[in-house]
Structure formats: C-alpha cells, structure tokens
Amino acid sequence: MRNNHGMWTALIALSLTVAGCAEVQRAAEDVARQSGNPRLAGAIHGAGNVVGSLLPIGYEEESSIGQAMALQVVARYGGVVDQPELVRYVNLVGRAVADTSDRPDIPYRVAILDHESINAFAVPAGYIFVTRGLLRQIRNEAELAAVLGHEIAHVSEKHILDVIQRSKRLAGVTEAGLSYATSNPAAFKGVIDGAVKKLLDEGLDQEKETDADMVGDVFAARVGYDAEAYVGLLMRLRDLKGDDRALFKTHPNFSARIDAVQKTIRTKHLATTGVVLQERFSRMTKRV
C-alpha cells in the first residue's frame, strides 16, 4: 500500500515536472525527504533529470555551448581578422539574411578567421565563422549571403544542437540544463570536445549539409539576393578543387550540392533576378 502511495507520488511529481514546474518538482522532493523517504526524493530528482535531458536544449545552455565551441574554433584557426570595416560589412550581410531566416530572434555574429583554408563554420547560438581563404574565393555579395545563409541554416535548423544532444548522451550527462557544466566540468568539456571534433574534423551528416545549402539559399533569396549566385560559387570551387575530394572536406561533393541547390531554385520558385552587388562587395573586401 505504502509502495503504491509512493509510486503515485512519483508519477504525479513526474507529470508536474513534464509540465515544466521545476519548483513543484523541488517541492515534491522536499516533501518526500521530510516525510522520511529519501529514496522517493532521489527517484523524483532522477526522474526530473532524465526527462530534462530528453528535452530540447534551451537558449541559455545553447549560448554557453556556443561560446565554448567558438573558443575552440578561434584557437584552432589561429585568431581572427581585425579589420573593423570588413567585419562590420560581413556582419551586415549576415544580419540581412538572418533577419528573414526561420530563426531571427537570436543574435548572430560573424567573424573572419585569419586562415588561408577555404571553409566556414557555425556553432550554436549564432556564432558564425568564415575563413579569409573562402572570402577570397567569393566574387559578390549574393555569394557571400548564400554562404552565410548556409551557416545560419545550421543554427536555425539546430543541426549542431542535435550533435550536442548525442554528445551529451555519449558523455553520460543525464542532468537537465546547464548545471552539469559547473557540477561536472569534465563532462561539459567532454560534450564540447566531442561536438568540436564532429564539426571541424569529421563533419556533420551529409544530409544536414545539403539541407543547409538549400535552406540557406532560400534565406538569401528571401532578402532579395540572386538565388543562382550560390550555384556560381559552388561551380567555381568544383573547378578549383575537383569533385572527388570536396573542398569543404566535411561536406558532400560539389556536383551533388549544385544539383540540390538548382532543384531548390526550381521547386521553390526562387528569384534568379535578385541583386548580386558585385561593386559593393569588391569595395568592402578589397583588403582581404
């Protein structure tokens, strides 16, 4: 009978927890503890953590993860370009695209990595990186907008957060939210290191990259950039590096990406008469 009572208490506490009542969960734990049932209190606490770990990551946690991953990206790529006018320009293009993306309600910031490789990255919470090498390959603002659109799509579609969820499970983190970052810093480090390795060394799943290409081109077209511009950039990169070894080593090959973007332009009826803004791009990036 007592066991049944305990089970129902736990179930009610769990239901309230699922309903988002953290305070009620804590109160139920207190009641169980004060009534001399520490095991039940522990069960309620554990159940709450398990449920919490299965829920999507909230922005507060996303922001901490993004900052920690951004630290690693900057460290691995040897710092950023310190040219205020150029940085402001790429951020303006990023804002223009992000403001009409599917997730415009978080801040996005773009930094230029001082590195000759040709690459771009996004980490959670809107931290976006483009290498100097990639910027040198871009010929107009519409191409830049599509590249930034691709990265913004990774953030808005929460591609990296999916990796983090997996990384958390692999690191054995069952606690809800960010508390593990301070209570178990080794686990937080494990989560970040795993996600950075996936992003920089192994690459995201190819479907996610293709998805980001298509969604990113839609974002750029929404604000008025020529949707075909991205196809032009991808074709030049294919000519430069070939198709067998993708230039972005972590991405699908160029021909597949070009096909996917062209299909998106056709099926979504994206405007190919938008602006490319070559002159403004050349003027603003002449010192790259």
Binding site: V18, A22, G52, G58, Y59, R103, D105, S156, G177, S179
Partner: peptide
C-alpha cells in the same frame, strides 16, 4: 515559424529555472 523558442525548448528552459524570453532577446 517556431524559431528558437518552440514549446519544447521553452519547457526545457522552464525546468532549468531559466527565463527563455530574457535570454533569446538580442
């Protein structure tokens, strides 16, 4: 649009005792 503030994410935020609306503003 669901954006970054979808119901489940808000629920997660609530469980962690944080205020989603205060942290999603730019």
């Amino acid at each position: 649009p669901s954006g970054g503030n979808d119901t489940l994410a808000r629920l997660g935020q609530s469980m962690r005792g944080g205020d989603a609306s205060a942290t999603t503003a730019s």
